[in-house]
């Protein structure tokens, strides 16, 4: 297969192009996604190509966006709706929790094939309202598939699968990943939902990491290799439903686990993954599962304070070393 190098941003853009071309029922809307092509330029060129009925800018009204995407999905479209920053998912949340996710369960025979695209993550000096990772809120609600790709390859292939899937899928991007590069095939491919990916093989410790924390974990793994510690990095890619088999297989080999999630510690997805892993793998574990997360503190602006909030390579290394001692 011939490969090419693209950014995470381009990968998502390509997936949208290809799926809109393939299926006229796919529509794309959100704030500034049309004429401008999105504040992160992820939807660049789509309005020009597919026109104002299928790709359009909306009023600033996240509740209406989420609800309208839901209704449009019920009535025969396959909407991709963008909530620009995950920090204001709260405004859309009632629709998501009490309409989108409820409908397929109660209205038997009705499907809600939509993709909610949003992005979270810190590192941009965005302060409290532009940096949060609130995937745990969505993850908590039954009936929503939650995907958090970390590479251009996964992002493109997974988004294509998400658009083709008949369930509501929350597709959560990371703002600091947009410019990162990776290889993808020249031609058509998809990545299945619900399948984890081993990003690096190792034998001493399994690091289960989400989104940008996969990148940080790989950096940590590289440095730890020099210290003689072999780290396996597993990226769940889709966090719900979770590919527990791949994680369990890794744990069987390493017997030690660190879970990494850039989110407030209490009630983070990391907490739930930890619970799931110990339920399934208790007999394989040589010590407690450790978590690397952000603390239960709002994300401060001051560049001088950021280090205290951000989880990353160094904190992951520390946790792996700690894990080896236990």
């Amino acid at each position: 297969m011939t490969m090419k190098k693209v950014t995470y941003r381009q990968a998502i853009n390509e997936a949208l192009f290809e799926e809109m071309e393939r299926d006229p029922k796919v529509v794309l809307f959100g704030e500034d996604v049309g004429t401008y092509g999105g504040v992160f330029k992820v939807t660049d060129g789509l309005k020009k190509k597919f026109g104002n009925e299928r790709v359009f800018d909306t009023p600033i009204a996240e509740a209406a966006l989420m609800g309208a995407a839901t209704g449009a999905a019920v009535a025969g479209l396959r909407p991709v709706v963008e909530i620009m920053f995950m920090d204001w998912i709260g405004i859309a949340m009632d629709q998501l929790v009490n309409q989108t996710s409820m409908i397929p369960y109660i209205w038997e025979g009705i499907k809600v094939p939509l993709v909610l695209r949003t992005q979270g993550g810190s590192g941009s000096k965005g302060s409290c309202q532009h940096t949060k990772s609130l995937e745990a809120w969505i993850y908590h609600v039954p009936g929503i598939v939650v995907a958090m790709p970390s590479t251009p390859y996964d992002a493109k292939g997974l988004l294509k699968s998400a658009i083709r899937n008949d369930n509501p899928v929350a597709f959560i991007e990371h703002k600091m990943l947009y410019p990162t590069e990776g290889e993808i095939p020249e031609g058509e491919y998809t990545v299945p939902l619900g399948r984890a990916s081993v990003k690096r093989e190792g034998k001493d410790v399994t690091v289960v990491a989400l989104s940008k924390m996969v990148v940080e974990s790989l950096k940590a793994a590289k440095e730890l290799e020099d210290e003689g510690i072999s780290v396996e990095v597993v990226d769940p890619v889709t966090i719900k439903p979770l590919d527990m088999d791949t994680i369990a297989e890794s744990v069987k080999k390493t017997n030690r686990v660190v879970v990494v999630n850039e989110a407030f510690r209490t009630g983070a997805v990391a907490s739930d993954l930890t619970a799931q892993i110990q339920e399934r793998c208790f007999d394989d574990l040589d010590g407690p599962i450790l978590r690397v997360t952000a603390p239960d503190v709002q994300v401060p602006y001051s560049p001088a304070l950021e280090q205290f909030w951000l989880p990353g390579k160094d904190k992951i290394k520390q946790a792996v070393l700690e894990c080896m001692k236990r």
């Binding site: 000096k125 302060s127 409290c128 309202q129 709002q298 401060p300 602006y301 001051s302 304070l305």
Partner: peptide, 8 residues
């Protein structure tokens, strides 16, 4: 004390 920045 620097926690909010420009937007807060």
């Amino acid at each position: 004390r620097g926690k909010g920045g420009h937007m807060l």
